[in-house]
């Protein structure tokens, strides 16, 4: 279907944006979700306010012990950035899973987090990495933890008139291990079920601060509290993996969806958990 009649204006600074954000206005970033939903007439904004030329929302930098990623960072840029690869390698690993090259050339991290699709990769990565979102509004800024930002199905802590300006990620230490795995019908499709896994693996082979985060299985990213507790402080071996898989069931309450029943999703989560942890074990033990 064709898009509904709408207005369009481009803000070239935050000040212009605050003046433009009124009744019926909606922010347009990469447009890779918003414009697709317009075709279904799922949304009928009065005016689209294009934020892609606002310089304050761009850029990737390291300062004050965090990696700051501007909201307008496109998926393709995120995937090839050297600072991201060094300080938050999970994000680099995630990008090839997000849609397809032409969509990655336009879609932004701010748009992905604001839309909060439960099957999307970047919201899960933000939770797994314990990121902090920088939210801006006319006359101020506040910081919200990713774990508190996603409040329900396609809903977030964003207030009217507020935008995501940037995302701050803690810098990965030398013992950090990360992997993202998912099951999708077609490469690039939203995941049926996915896992963003982050943990520290000490020289003694023990796990610290595990943050296994599942996506596509709930209303938002699901930080698997019980499975993570089952892993904390343990040596990474087959017993630990089995214990985490056993604990995982109580962390999940997947809805039935187009892909299949809850039992199928639970099964896929257990399999992904096994594969993720296995990938962190030394090659010699994997063979054994």
């Amino acid at each position: 279907m064709k898009w509904p009649a709408l207005g369009y204006l481009r803000a070239s600074s935050l000040d212009e944006l605050w003046r433009a954000l009124g009744e019926g206005a909606q922010i347009l970033a990469g447009g890779q979700t918003l414009l697709a939903t317009l075709a279904f007439r799922l949304s009928e904004p009065g005016t689209l306010v294009d934020i892609t030329r606002i310089p304050e929302l761009r850029g990737i930098s390291v300062a004050g012990g965090v990696l700051r990623v501007g909201a307008l960072t496109r998926h393709a840029e995120l995937g090839r950035d050297a600072l991201v690869a060094r300080h938050a390698p999970l994000l680099t690993q995630a990008v090839p899973h997000i849609a397809h090259p032409a969509i990655r050339n336009r879609g932004t991290i701010g748009g992905s987090l604001a839309y909060a699709d439960p099957a999307a990769e970047l919201p899960a990565c933000a939770v797994a990495l314990d990121a902090t979102l920088v939210l801006a509004r006319a006359g101020g800024e506040r910081r919200v933890k990713a774990t508190e930002f996603f409040t329900g199905l396609l809903t977030t802590a964003l207030e009217p008139g507020e935008i995501i300006a940037a995302v701050e990620f803690p810098l990965a230490g030398p013992s950090q291990r990360t992997v993202i795995l998912e099951v999708a019908r077609r490469s690039g499709d939203y995941a049926m079920t996915g896992l963003a896994a982050v943990l520290d693996l000490g020289a003694d082979g023990r796990i610290a601060s595990p943050r296994l985060t599942f996506f596509g299985v709930g209303e938002g990213p699901v930080l698997a509290a019980r499975a993570n507790a089952a892993l904390e402080g343990r040596a990474l071996d087959a017993t630990a993996i089995a214990a985490a898989q056993a604990a995982l069931d109580a962390d999940l309450d997947p809805p039935a969806d187009l892909h299949g029943p809850p039992a199928m999703k639970r099964h896929l989560c257990r399999v992904l958990l096994g594969r993720a942890l296995q990938s962190f074990t030394p090659a010699t033990e994997q063979a054994a």
């Binding site: 369009y8 481009r10 347009l28 890779q32 892609t52 032409a102 969509i103």
Partner: peptide, 11 residues
């Protein structure tokens, strides 16, 4: 490369 159907001409 982009999806032409997901880009506003006006932009």
């Amino acid at each position: 490369i982009v999806r032409g159907c997901l880009v506003l001409a006006a932009s």
